[in-house]
Structures are given as structure tokens and as C-alpha cells.
Simulated assay, not measured.
Amino acid sequence: MTAEVLHIGEVARRTGLSVHTLRLYEREGLLAGEVLRDEAGRRVYSAWDVEWLGNCVKFRASGMPLAVIGRLARLVREGTGNEAERLEVLREHRRHVAERIAQLQDCLDLVDGKVAAYERHLAADGVGEPW
């Protein structure tokens, strides 16, 4: 059984990344594996590459800088023996994400309070100041 081979357009569709972004990620060393080329010189990706890129999309959405993704990708490319360093990169990012979640929860609490105040205000036929 042969491994699935995907061209850049299909990878773009599967990951939601643009072709331009995929090329940028390759240039910047953000891929955990080498991008191979077919006989015609076109980039070919594996299912594993797509999985890694899916992780990158989530890392970016969670605020991970491209430089940190690049560091993590480099560590993965280097192979076994650096798992402790990978773990520390991920733990540090987890701390960042947890802090951001706490900030967003504080913002949500404020918005929820304002929504409740306006709902009470409107239920009371606009009596009193909701703010």
C-alpha cells in the first residue's frame, strides 16, 4: 500500500492555509519534515505533513509565534533525544494560552454582566440606567 501523496492545492484546501502561506512556512522552516518534489518539480506532501500543518494552524490560533513553531519544527526534524526541550516549548506555550484564556474569561464576565444589565433594563421598560 502506498502513502497518500498530496499536492500543494489539496494541502491548502485541507488545512485552510493559502498556497502562499504553505510556501512561506516551507521557506521559514516551519514544517517538521522535508517537502519532497515529484518528477515535475511540484511539491508533494504526506498525510503526516497535513497533520503537522493542522497543528501549526492551531498553534497560530492560540498565539504561538512563527519563531516558536519554527523552533518546535526544528526539534522534530532533529529526531529523538530532544523531547525534554520540545516539552518545555509546549509547556511555556501552554502557560501563555492559559493566561490568555483567563484574560478572555475576565472579558466575557464583563460582557455577560452588561448583557444581564441591559436585559433587566429592557424588561423593566427602560427604567433606570443599565450602565
Rank of each mutant, 00 (worst) to 15 (best):
L72G: 11
A32P: 02
G79I: 03
E119V: 13
D125M: 03
A123N: 12
A12L: 08
Y118S: 02
L6C: 04
R13E: 15
V115H: 03
D38Y: 01
R60Y: 03
G113C: 02
P130N: 04
A102E: 15
V97S: 10
R86D: 00
R42C: 09
R23D: 08
D49E: 07
R91P: 12
E92V: 15
V127Y: 01
E39F: 00
E10R: 13
E85W: 06
V50H: 10
E85N: 03
A47L: 12
E129W: 14
P65F: 02
K58F: 10
R37D: 06
V57H: 03
T15L: 02
L87T: 08
L104H: 06
K114P: 02
E34T: 06
T2D: 11
A32Q: 04
F59W: 14
R14P: 10
E85A: 15
A47W: 04
L17G: 03
A124F: 03
V44P: 04
E99K: 09
E129G: 02
D125V: 07
D106Q: 14
G29L: 01
V89T: 05
L17Q: 01
E39K: 08
E34G: 03
G126A: 10
V68W: 00
R37I: 08
R86L: 00
N55M: 11
L90Y: 01
G113E: 10
R13Y: 02
G29V: 02
R43Q: 04
G63D: 13
E39S: 13
M1I: 05
A123T: 15
W131D: 14
C56H: 01
L108W: 06
G126C: 09
E10D: 14
P130F: 04
M1T: 10
W48Q: 15
G29I: 02
D38A: 07
G113M: 01
V68R: 14
L22P: 07
A61L: 07
A84F: 01
S18C: 02
V35E: 12
L72I: 11
G9S: 11
A47G: 09
R42T: 09
V97K: 09
A40W: 07
A40V: 07
L66T: 12
G33M: 09
L110A: 12
E92I: 06
R23E: 05
R86T: 00
G41H: 08
E92M: 03
R71Q: 13
L66I: 14
G63H: 06
Q103N: 09
M64H: 07
L17P: 00
A116S: 12
